[in-house]
Design a protein around this nucleic acid. Structure first.
Lengths: 121, 121, 121, 121
DNA sequence: GTGGTCTAGACCACA
DNA sequence: GTGGTCTAGACCACA
């Protein structure tokens, strides 16, 4: 993972963890790596990871237990909702990009269909 | 305009100019700002702008005339093609993002339609 | 090597490297001297060599690998083609020169034959 | 005309005048432009032109007459010989270039023929 | 160590 | 004034 400076690093780490959660790479109730481990792996300051974890906890996507660690929420509805809201930002970004090129609704759908023609899934 | 460090500045400037060209903010044959002017405006070194302009010239999106300036190509087909290829990268990025969330083709189109319901255009 | 001012230094360096490649002095896949080494040897600024290398990479005659160095292409066809196109420019220049002296086709061939009489190869 | 620094300017001017003589742009016996005129036109120091003229006189290609000016030689044989020796340098340069690419006699003639196929003259 | 990018500043060619 | 090239020197990413 490498960071860009468009967003704070702690936000980029939050996004990475959210992505792992919504694709079940980190399962409901599963323990996240320790702050120290992840800090070492990503070569960032432990305080930065701590901040990511606290914000995720504030968003109720993870919860921490003193002396045990930090865990993915057990609330499957919450995870489903998280996934939908991430998808939502992708969709909105895409529409904004295409409209900045002055493509209209019909054209956007058409281009998307053409590009996905090959895909089965 | 502010730069992130995910891509070289000269590439980000190229992208900005391309965007202005495809939406006709910079018209076919129109003179671009001088290297020095744009450098001052964006607070980057003139060499960096020079690099952006040279690369754009290599891609035949602009052409430069010594002592006169740098100009948008006169080739409308070229501009049309540029617009389509930028749109193409947006579409591909979007599909990749959605698939990373494990959405399939039908779901992607559906989400897009829902989000664009409000739009008339 | 000494430079004349008819062409940019970076172009003259490109030509020198191309010549070495087509006569197998630099073999397919072989590592080129580092930017810094060649800069010191030719007493030009590393940025100028960097420019030569980038342009050669754009022409797909060399490829660079971050942290490892810059290498001659592995594509023997490409090298063969390069040799032919350099030869082509020599032939064209020669014809232009001779025609500027108002020699015709038959005379050019004749003069060339006379001059090469001594050669066996 | 623009100069490169591979050869002294006075030599480059000599070459230019020789070329004009051998293609009859400057005819046998014709007056050359005055040193001052040509100096002004080429934006070089009159002494440089003077040197070119003196060298050309030493080579008996021009002759000067006090108070009248400098004139192309009347000796047509001399001009013919000059033309042949210039052609000779072109031929030799060409052969050297092609041999540096490791082309042999047969290949050189062949390439030349191919390139001149289209020409009638 | 190796290539890649960027700034600062100079000078040139061309109009 | 405008683009083009070059030097000097810094810092970064990657191995």
């Amino acid at each position: 993972m490498d960071f860009n400076n468009a967003f704070p690093i702690y936000v980029q780490i939050m996004d990475m963890i959210k992505r792992k959660i919504v694709v079940n790479e980190l399962k409901a109730g599963e323990k996240l790596p320790s702050v120290r481990d992840i800090a070492q792996e990503l070569k960032v300051n432990p305080n930065t990871i701590q901040r990511s974890y606290s914000e995720l906890e504030r968003e109720e996507i993870v919860f921490s237990q003193r002396g045990l660690g930090t865990f993915v929420t057990q609330d499957l509805e919450k995870i489903k909702y998280l996934k939908e809201s991430i998808a939502s930002t992708f969709v909105e970004k895409f529409i904004r990009d295409m409209e900045s090129l002055e493509y209209n609704k019909v054209e956007i759908i058409k281009l998307l269909n053409i590009k996905m023609e090959g895909y089965n899934e």
